[in-house]
């Protein structure tokens, strides 16, 4: 009897003591969490994939709440849930969902091994940042891609890879979430996040200047076969005032660009403007357009198969 009583009392006392300790500990060490974080977490997929760049969905939720306090959810995207989820998150946080224009990373350098001769050899840590600090790089172009792949290392989605033949990174449009990590990793600011562009025939059409060289024409020309030399031809042909020329370098404003392709044809010597589709070359009025022959039939086919956008485009271009 006595034994049982002692056991009960001792255990009871221990239990009471432990519960008191727990009670005070929970008060003392209570972590206050913004209730919104929990709410946001609930609408997230809970895949905890880390694809957003944060440690799991709760990390992303916390980041969203913090960003919302700053006034905007820009740059925050759950690649699994996509736009619908982000709209829900925005609703919880009392913000407008960011404009849903899909974007993609674009590499603005075409200085492949053929186009850009190597003049010195780089020896050091395989890092663009280090190479950039060492000097202009292996070529005479001090603005172009260094080819060490910092962007590839920065990408969490396996969406950018070095092409061993050209020595340049290539973006996988399907996988790219336009998170901008590669753009930040690039010490030369070569990678730009641009709108994917209007979809025609299942592929998005966008145009960009495939060069970031700000050197004067002759220097840029010597450094690379496909550099922008700032001649301004594209600026003249653009009907939408989308192209500006600054520091010997053309830039196409994606907001104004209608992807008509005129500039691509204008840049027929340096080929420094890149388009994601085969731009029809106008019927040769003069004989200096040998590329016209193979490109033209395709262009006609394009018009035939997709009459609507083509019709939209043509009058504007002619206006």
């Amino acid at each position: 009897m006595n034994v049982i009583l002692i056991a009960v009392i001792v255990l009871g006392a221990i239990g009471l003591l432990a519960s008191l300790v727990l009670f005070f500990a929970s008060k003392k060490f209570a972590v206050h969490e913004d209730p919104r974080i929990g709410q946001v977490s609930e609408v997230l997929p809970q895949a905890n994939c880390g694809g957003c760049g944060f440690p799991g969905c709760s990390g992303f939720a916390a980041a969203c709440v913090k960003a919302a306090d700053g006034g905007s959810l820009e740059g925050k995207l759950c690649p699994v849930g996509g736009q619908p989820v982000m709209e829900k998150v925005a609703a919880i946080l009392g913000l407008e969902a960011a404009a849903a224009e899909p974007k993609v990373a674009v590499v603005r350098c075409n200085g492949s091994c053929q186009n850009r001769p190597r003049i010195v050899e780089y020896d050091g840590a395989i890092s663009c940042r280090v190479a950039n600090a060492t000097g202009a790089g292996e070529t005479a172009c001090q603005f172009g891609c260094l080819g060490c792949g910092d962007c590839v290392a920065a990408c969490k989605f396996d969406a950018i890879h070095m092409n061993p033949e050209t020595g340049l990174p290539e973006v996988d449009e399907e996988k790219c979430t336009a998170c901008g990590a590669c753009s930040k990793a690039c010490p030369r600011n070569i990678i730009e996040i641009r709108p994917k562009g209007r979809v025609v025939k299942g592929s998005a059409r966008r145009v960009w200047v495939d060069c970031v060289n700000k050197d004067k024409g002759p220097v840029a020309m010597k450094a690379c076969n496909v550099s922008c030399i700032g001649c301004g031809k594209c600026v003249k042909v653009c009907k939408f005032e989308a192209i500006t020329l600054e520091n010997n370098l053309a830039y196409i404003d994606p907001e104004k660009c209608k992807a008509c392709g005129q500039c691509v044809n204008a840049c027929n010597v340096r080929h420094a403007i890149h388009a994601t589709w085969e731009v029809p070359v106008p019927k040769p009025k003069t004989e200096d357009a040998p590329a016209a022959a193979p490109a033209a039939p395709k262009a006609e086919a394009a018009v035939a198969e997709a009459p609507k956008p083509a019709a939209e485009e043509t009058p504007k271009a002619e206006a």
């Binding site: 190597r118 003049i119 010195v120 050899e121 780089y122 020896d123 050091g124 280090v130 600090a133 060492t134 000097g135 292996e138």
Partner: peptide
């Protein structure tokens, strides 16, 4: 040959 560049 080509010169080598590297940091000190």
């Amino acid at each position: 040959g080509k010169l080598t560049i590297s940091l000190s």
